[in-house]
Amino acid sequence: MMRRFTAFNLVSIVLGFAFLYLPIVLLVIYSFNASRLVTVWGGFSTKWYASLLENEAILDAAWVTLRVGLVSATIATVLGTMGAVALVRRGRFFGRTLFTGMIMAPLVMPEVITGLSLLLLFVAVDFDRGFWTVTIAHISFSMCFVAVVVQSRLVTFDRSLEEAALDLGATPLRAFVQVTLPNIFPAVAAGWMLAFTLSLDDLVIASFTTGPGATTLPMKIYSQVRLGVTPEINAVCTILVALVTLGVLTATIATKARAFSPQAEAR
């Protein structure tokens, strides 16, 4: 049975959600504003979306962001999954608790520190900064998120399934690919989505590690906003919000869905 809302509950929920989402809603609304002035409503229009298509600088930045996102999310998913498997499967090796803790740490590490330390690393090894440094930086922090998501699925995965595959003559790699992976796939997909979304909206770490010709969308937006908010920026942000929402929703649904649900397939 659902508990009835009391007046107090209702007020707190409305206030809480308003505080969270009102700014975003405003941003979305003003992206359809016909007026050039950001705070004055001048009627409905999609002209800022059209003019966006002619803004080379923003389109370039979007393209960089997308590439960084796709490449870093994919590599982070592979590495993060491997890390999770090692932590869950390797049994009790020396310092396992330490490693498990260490994989969590980047999740709470201030981004400024992550960004700065990566910058120092790239400078130290004399790595030309640009697309690949941003991508590597994104891999390094989103990998941890993937590892945590996949790890939580792996601990509930029945080990004897993998043993059965080995017993039937599958090499360890085949056993993993043909038996373990299909069963933990939703978690892996959710990890990828998460990594992609994180990469998409990262500003701090990207600013530290970027170089010429690799300006990401959040960086572009930030630098433009300092010159004054234009409705064009609102339009870009609206698209970003839509993308991130889609990513998070897909990740959530994928985690909840059972791996290749047999019922779903049979019916």
């Binding site: 043993e163 059965a164 017993d167 038996v179 047999p262």
Partner: peptide, 14 residues
Amino acid sequence: PVNMMFQSYALFPH
């Protein structure tokens, strides 16, 4: 050259 029938059966669910 040994095969095992597991206590939990361990059939591949997918």
